[in-house]
Design a protein around this nucleic acid. Structure first.
Length: 284
DNA sequence: GAATTATCTTCTGTTACTTCA
DNA sequence: CGTGAAGTAACAGAAGATAAT
């Protein structure tokens, strides 16, 4: 694709607790580079990612949670500890032992999630017989809630976080991974919609401004064409911009600023006005 | 040090399933 | 009850980053 880094960044909150950006700038998806990711994996996030009391609370209601797992359907790629293209099994490429350890941990998590589902007597057996096609199962409200909370804290997970979360929710790590993928996609989509709306409004403002200016030009031309009027006119009115507050003011000659102290300053051309400034800030 | 390869992670688009009006 | 729309879990493939060779 090439221009992936040019994609709009989803930095706005959308009620997700993500940072907001004050004014419109086509920003970029912040995709942590692998180095950063590795850095995070190697410490900071792991230290940060300790389930808080809030999560501990949520853990309590997770008892007896709907596991949403087909006991008989074997997820070949991860059950075997073999990494899928999407798998986040390993932590640092090349560190074999560490990777294997994590793969084992993940396989264990898989097995555990599966065992849990079996013990709870999943009633989703229908279609489980031999149908290798995916069986989509809804996550419970509680599971979604915890995932959502975690996503608010950080929208990507390192393998350890993923494992911990999967274990906490009795889900397969792959499910957690997929949930985060989809969640990021949804966030991005929402952001794109917001940005789109914003651009639309900018466009409308520009169109309006353009119309107004055209009209003004016409009026001025008309004035110029009627010499009598032209001769008896006051000195041409000029638009000036106060260098201090950047407000446009109509003046005849003397005062160019709303702030007399700044009158000695440079007189900036009044045009063009910043069309973006006219657009109301969008709540994000 | 540059080139190549392997591995990992994320994004994107799509499909399949669930829920609801 | 059947149906279509919307939401979303799950998947596949492409691309970028990085470490190892």
């Amino acid at each position: 694709m090439g221009g992936r880094d040019d994609e709009l960044r989803l930095t706005l909150s959308l009620g997700l607790g993500v940072t907001t950006r004050p004014s419109f700038q086509p920003t970029h998806i912040h995709r942590p580079s692998n180095s950063m990711h590795n850095h995070i994996r190697n410490g900071s996030w792991n230290e940060l990612f300790q389930f808080s009391d809030r999560n501990a609370d949520s853990r309590s209601f997770l008892r007896g949670i709907d596991v949403n797992r087909l006991p008989t359907v074997v997820d070949g790629e991860e059950e075997n500890g073999v990494s899928s293209p999407n798998s986040t099994v390993s932590s640092i490429s090349g560190k074999r032992s560490e990777r294997e350890a994590e793969a084992e941990a993940e396989a264990e998590a898989e097995a555990e999630a599966e065992r849990a589902s079996c013990s709870q007597g999943s009633d989703d057996e229908d279609g489980g017989g031999g149908d290798a096609s995916r069986k989509k199962l809804r996550l419970s409200k509680e599971q979604s809630m915890v995932l959502e909370e975690t996503f608010k804290e950080h929208n990507t997970l390192n393998p350890k976080q993923k494992l911990a979360l999967a274990k906490q929710l009795n889900l397969r790590p792959r499910q957690v991974e997929v949930w985060f993928q989809n969640r990021r996609a949804r966030t991005k989509l929402k952001q794109t919609e917001v940005d789109c709306e914003y651009l639309k409004r900018c466009c409308e403002n520009l169109t309006g401004e353009n119309r107004r200016l055209q009209k003004e030009v016409q009026e001025l031309r008309a004035l110029k064409l009627s010499p009598q009027l032209y001769m008896h006119m006051n000195p041409p009115t000029t638009l000036t911009m106060c260098p201090q507050c950047e407000r446009v003011a109509v003046s005849s000659s003397s005062s160019t600023t709303c702030h007399p102290a700044a009158a000695a300053g440079v007189q900036r051309p009044s045009m063009p006005l910043n069309p973006w400034a006219a657009v109301l800030p969008i709540e994000r």
